[in-house]
Each structure stands twice: as structure tokens, then as C-alpha cells.
Simulated scan of single mutants.
Amino acid sequence: MTAKSLFDAVGIPHSTYHYQPDAMNGPDRHAWLLPLVEEAFGNGEKRYGCKRVHLELKGMGMTVSAKRVMRLMAKHGMVPLRKSAKRYGSCKGGPAKAPADLVNRDFHAERPNMPWVTDLTEFSIPAGKAYLPPIIDCHDGLPVAWTIGTSPNAALANGMLSDACSTLGEDEKPVIHSDRGCHYRRAE
């Protein structure tokens, strides 16, 4: 088998094959950028990640790809000293074992109050973050109850559940389906 037949089988031009070794062994066309990236990284006391270094370069009037900055930093071992803070995650360990999925992904109901679905939604607003856990009736898709607060705590979920349960008759016992996150698995 010849090299030409391989190029034809793979579908690449013969010139591309010969270009790659020359390009890899040739001078780095982004060598001018490395001192600027190192300077921006050093200005941040080695705490800036690639996004912040890219913003620093942009502030200097440099037009360069964020991915190029990320590759240069990774190639030359420029790693921030401290990792950034973790974002909020609703499941940080399970307070209780997750219950079985009784709804089995069938979210249609023949009558009201059977079943209900819920989840905790996070919104970014100018004042910070707001959390909204509504209960939706699968019969008509309308909210049964909801609460809103600035902290995704048990009181928020429990208040919504109490409000929803207060709308029920004595013989109504709906199944409540959630993502089985820790807010809905507390003993309360």
C-alpha cells in the first residue's frame, strides 16, 4: 500500500501531510503572546485563571482568542494558586435515602391533585439570588403552592409543602414527584 492510496482512502490532500511536520517543527507563531500572558498572570499574583488573564489582555488592547490563552497557560504550567469557590449544588450528601420513583415519568393525571411535581429553581436578580420551589398539579399544569426566598434551605421547601397540603381535602393524598434532591429528603 502506498502513501498516496492512504491519503485517498482517508480523504486528505498529500500537501496536508507534508505541511503538518513543518508546522509543528517551525517557529511558534504565538511566541509574542507568551510574555504578555506571563505578565498578566504575574500581575494577578499567580491567582488568575485563563478567563481573567484573557480579560487582562483585552484590557491591554490585545485581541486574542481565549482558547489560545488557555492553551499557552496550560502548556507553560501557569496554574492559579487557589481554585475558585464552588458554585451552589443542591445535593451535598444525602440526609436520607432517596425514595422510589412512584410516578415512573408518567406526568399525566385524570383528576386534580394526582400527582404533583416540584423542583427548586434558582434565579439571578440584581439583589442577588432568589430560590423558588413551586408545586405543579399534573392535571392542569397550574401551580398549587410556592414559596420564594434568598436561601435554598429546608424552611423554603417545607413552607411550600405545608401551603400545598393545606389545599387538600381529607381523602386526597397526592404523590409528590421531585428530583429527589436533599431539600425534599429531610425528615420533616
Rank of each mutant, 00 (worst) to 15 (best):
K92M: 05
R111K: 15
P95I: 12
M114N: 13
K129D: 10
K67C: 10
R82C: 13
K97F: 08
G61R: 08
S124I: 09
K75C: 01
A66T: 08
V103R: 04
G59C: 00
F107L: 04
F123E: 07
D119I: 03
A96D: 11
G128T: 09
P134N: 06
D119C: 06
V69P: 00
M60T: 10
R82Y: 15
T118Y: 01
M73E: 02
Y131C: 12
P80E: 11
P143W: 06
K86D: 04
W146N: 04
K83F: 02
G59T: 00
R105G: 01
H139E: 10
R87G: 12
G141F: 03
M70I: 00
L57C: 05
P99S: 10
V64G: 04
V79K: 15
V64A: 01
K86Q: 13
R105E: 06
K58H: 12
K86C: 02
V69W: 01
V64H: 03
M73T: 02
R87I: 01
P112S: 09
D119Y: 09
H76I: 02
A85V: 07
A66K: 14
K58W: 09
A66L: 08
S90L: 12
I136E: 07
C138I: 04
H139D: 01
P126L: 06
V144H: 03
D119L: 04
T121M: 14
K129M: 11
S65N: 15
V103K: 05
P143Y: 12
E122R: 11
A100D: 15
D140H: 02
H76D: 08
P112Y: 04
P80K: 13
A145T: 06
P143G: 10
A127F: 07
V117N: 02
N104S: 10
F107K: 07
Y131Q: 09
R82T: 14
A96T: 14
I148L: 15
S124H: 14
D140I: 00
Y88K: 10
K58D: 05
L102G: 02
D140G: 04
A96V: 12
G89I: 11
E56T: 09
K97L: 13
H139C: 14
K75M: 08
T147L: 02
W116T: 03
L72H: 03
I135E: 00
E122A: 10
M70N: 03
G93Y: 04
A130R: 08
P143M: 11
F107T: 07
G94H: 14
